[in-house]
Nucleic acid binder design. Structure first.
Lengths: 129, 129
DNA sequence: TATTACTATATGCATAGCGCATATATACAC
DNA sequence: GTGTATATATGCGCTATGCATATAGTAATA
């Protein structure tokens, strides 16, 4: 039996624990862009506080998600050539993007309730053993 | 913008909210089989209390997950031809399956913590508006 | 007896999301 | 000039899963 988190090599069978929330990076990005413009690399630092690791897989998902969000009009970007480092693509939230964030928040509350229910049943059954 | 739950036709773009836990049905099955043998169709009734819908998609995932779990030695099945209805394939948890459940429970606690953190940041930022 | 509905298990097809590797380029320290 | 941090981006391939469909036993009911 293999227990794995993110960024692992475990690919086979059902005895591999992933347990990640699908597309969770999208609402996380929207949250950190809410009232605070930022660029990809900087966003990853903030995303680490939500359990992301900054791995190459995470970076790939990050930049892809930002592109998709812009394609859908949820964020807009502008290139900014600062004094130091390579040029940054700075994103900010649109009105639609904020609305999407609020909808995500409701969806995440629902998901948390499911996990709560699972863990409650689990603990309940564990104590009756 | 499209907000969708499970079992929707939303396939494109990032403005579609899924927000589900990957492979969540696997630990759910293990939980309900813990000390209580059961078959697929009956398990689905119990899974509904964890937010599953019993849709054709859910049924497909259910039977596939059961097969995978058996292939990995996490459950064992026996055909039982009862007095009524078609024969049922009754599953029970193995020792490895129980160990897997415990590992899943820890993983789900971690995921719940991530959702908690997201929602805390979200509420915090919402109140400062 | 035909029809319908419920119980029960199973599989094929298509695709979204993502892990992993890799490419590219700037700036700065040593 | 070599290494490291910053910064963005994409190709490949696989897993999980949504959706549709197949199959069949039992039972009620028209």
């Amino acid at each position: 039996m293999t227990v794995c988190g993110r960024n692992n090599k475990c690919r086979s069978g059902s005895s591999c624990i992933h347990g990640r929330m699908e597309k969770f990076m999208e609402p996380s990005i929207l949250l950190f862009l809410w009232g605070q413009r930022s660029h990809g690399y900087e966003l990853m630092e903030k995303l680490k506080t939500l359990g992301f690791e900054g791995s190459s897989a995470d970076m790939a998902t990050l930049y892809r998600t930002l592109r998709n969000l812009e394609e859908d009009g949820m964020v807009v970007s502008t290139w900014e050539e600062g004094s130091q480092g390579p040029p940054k693509r700075v994103y900010e939230l649109t009105e639609n993007g904020e609305a999407l964030l609020h909808n995500w928040a409701r969806a995440i509350q629902v998901q948390r309730a499911r996990l709560d229910r699972f863990l409650a049943l689990y603990e309940q059954r564990r104590q009756s053993t």
